[in-house]
Simulated scan of single mutants.
Amino acid sequence: MTPHTNVVEPTAATPAAAGYAHEHAPRLPFPERVPEFYRAMLRLETAAAKDIDPTLYHLIKIRASQINHCAFCVDMHSKDALAEGETVERIVQLSAWAESRHFYTERELAALALTESVTVLTDGFVPDAVYSRAAAHFDETELARVIGAIVVINAWNRIAVTTRMTPGHYTPRSA
Rank of each mutant, 00 (worst) to 15 (best):
R39C: 00
A40Q: 06
A113K: 10
P31Q: 01
S78T: 14
P172I: 09
A149M: 08
S132R: 14
D53G: 06
S174K: 05
Y38E: 04
N154L: 04
R145N: 09
S78C: 12
Y131C: 03
D80E: 12
I150W: 10
E86Y: 02
T55N: 14
F125R: 13
T163S: 13
T46G: 12
P15W: 03
V74G: 10
E140S: 15
F37T: 13
H58A: 12
V146E: 01
A48C: 04
R133I: 01
L112Y: 08
V34D: 08
E45G: 06
F72K: 04
L44Q: 10
I67G: 04
R164Y: 00
H137F: 02
L28A: 02
A21V: 11
F125C: 05
A40L: 05
G19A: 12
A25Y: 00
H22G: 12
S65G: 10
H4W: 04
N154A: 03
E89Y: 07
E84L: 14
L143V: 09
D80I: 10
T171F: 04
A13W: 00
F30L: 09
Y104L: 11
P31A: 08
D80G: 05
S78W: 12
N6W: 01
A98Q: 15
E45P: 00
K61V: 02
T115Y: 05
V88M: 12
P26C: 00
R90C: 07
L82R: 15
T115R: 11
R43T: 05
L121N: 03
E86R: 13
V130S: 08
R33L: 14
E106R: 12
Y131P: 08
S132K: 13
T166K: 00
G168Q: 04
I150F: 05
N154T: 08
S100F: 14
V126G: 06
L56P: 14
R39F: 02
I60D: 13
L109F: 06
E45K: 11
L121H: 07
Y57I: 02
A16T: 05
C70Q: 09
D53L: 03
T55W: 06
D139R: 10
P3T: 07
D139W: 04
V130W: 13
A71G: 13
R33H: 08
S100K: 14
K50T: 08
I150D: 06
N157W: 05
T171A: 11
T171S: 07
D53F: 02
G148T: 02
L44H: 09
T163D: 00
D80V: 11
I62N: 14
R158V: 06
T166H: 01
A136R: 04
E32D: 13
A96L: 01
C73G: 11
P29D: 11
A13N: 07
D51W: 12
F30P: 00
P172Q: 09
R63S: 08
E106Q: 14
R101K: 13
Y104H: 14
T171C: 04
L42H: 07
R158G: 04
L121Q: 09
F37V: 15
